[in-house]
């Protein structure tokens, strides 16, 4: 009978104790934080409203002060090309050249001409520009062509000397041709005949510089003194190199303010105008801005909302009158901006 009583009381005590221990662990594992009660409001369709922190507001980043707008859109050129990727202006005659893999369009000012065949077949999108002597530099994904009466082509796919993976810009001054290869994250230097001379970047520890290119956007241009500027997009900086390709200085910082660059990798494109000012194009928050030669923010050329949001790059060019040409690669138009009152 004693055993029975022990059983009776023991089991009771044991079980309740087990429960209490469990409960204690439950309670102790809980550190009281701030428990804001989830206020579930209903929207019109009878669905619970989303908590505010799930909203990710892009609109905030797109704000700008209209007083900072320096340029107005002058005109828009329909290209009629399927996938235009390259845009350049011949500063000598003011002709605008838009290039796609299937052909090119020469525009005289704002008046579009006819789509003509390319002088050379391009493997994939690349870049286009005019050289110092008026020769046309036409680059595909991994091959550069110098077109001036004769066509000189060089480069092939790879990461070795004189090889390319993903050319995003090709520019030439009086002596050299520079190619920006986003795939290899380097800038290569060639002479005007296409002979390899050297490279900048590519973990070039000696030069102390390295290009950080997370996405296929890496642009270049020369200023009036012949210095080479390269957009180190991953660092959100523009870097200055001497005509020989030696690093000199850089500017640019990241942030959400209008004078800063936002995103992982900006500016995706830039161009230097006659006054040595920088015109920069950004993706993410699609906008074109203007900086002076020291990197001081001057104003907005094209505010957010100007371009189709699907654009991930906006190839730029300026003509001798400092009009800014921007290629909307989604809507396949060249948009021309000029300073207000021009």
């Amino acid at each position: 009978m004693d055993r029975k009583i022990i059983f009776k009381n023991g089991i009771w005590i044991l079980l309740v104790a087990a429960g209490l221990v469990g409960g204690y662990f439950m309670a102790s594992s809980y550190i009281p934080g701030n428990t804001a009660v989830n206020e579930v409001k209903s929207d019109g369709a009878g669905n619970p409203a989303l908590p505010e922190n799930f909203k990710y507001d892009m609109a905030k980043l797109k704000q700008y002060d209209p007083r900072q707008l320096l340029y107005g859109e002058e005109t828009k050129i329909k290209t009629g090309l399927k996938e235009p990727f390259g845009l350049t202006v011949n500063k000598k005659d003011g002709r605008v050249l838009v290039v796609s893999t299937e052909g090119m369009l020469v525009c005289d000012g704002a008046i579009a001409g006819k789509v003509a065949a390319l002088p050379v077949r391009l493997e994939g999108p690349g870049s286009v520009s005019f050289g110092f002597a008026g020769e046309l530099l036409l680059a595909g994904r991994d091959r550069v062509n110098i077109v001036s009466g004769t066509i000189i082509g060089f480069g092939k796919k790879g990461k070795g000397v004189g090889e390319f993976k993903y050319i995003t810009s090709v520019k030439a001054n009086a002596k050299y041709i520079f190619t920006a290869d986003a795939g290899n994250r380097r800038v290569c230097k060639f002479d005007l005949k296409g002979k390899y001379l050297g490279q900048i970047g590519r973990k070039d520890k000696a030069a102390g510089k390295n290009f950080v290119i997370p996405s296929p956007h890496m642009d270049m241009d020369f200023d009036s003194k012949g210095n080479l500027w390269v957009a180190n997009a991953g660092l959100l900086q523009l870097e200055k190199y001497s005509p020989e390709g030696v690093f000199v200085s850089s500017w640019g910082k990241h942030g959400i303010n209008i004078d800063e660059f936002i995103g992982c990798c900006n500016p995706v494109n830039f161009v230097i105008d006659g006054g040595d000012n920088f015109i920069t194009a950004e993706k993410g928050v699609l906008r074109i801005k203007k900086y002076d030669k020291t990197g001081k923010f001057l104003g907005v050329v094209a505010p957010p909302g100007t371009f189709n949001e699907k654009n991930t790059s906006i190839p730029l060019a300026v003509d001798s009158k400092n009009r800014v040409y921007a290629l909307d690669t989604i809507e396949k138009t060249v948009r021309v901006f000029s300073e207000k009152g021009y």
């Binding site: 994939g124 994904r141 990461k159 993976k165 993903y166 795939g183 994250r185 997370p214 996405s215 296929p216």
Partner: peptide, 11 residues
Amino acid sequence: GEYKFPPPEFD
């Protein structure tokens, strides 16, 4: 296939 932007090469 063909035109994929290559990821960085790591040392």
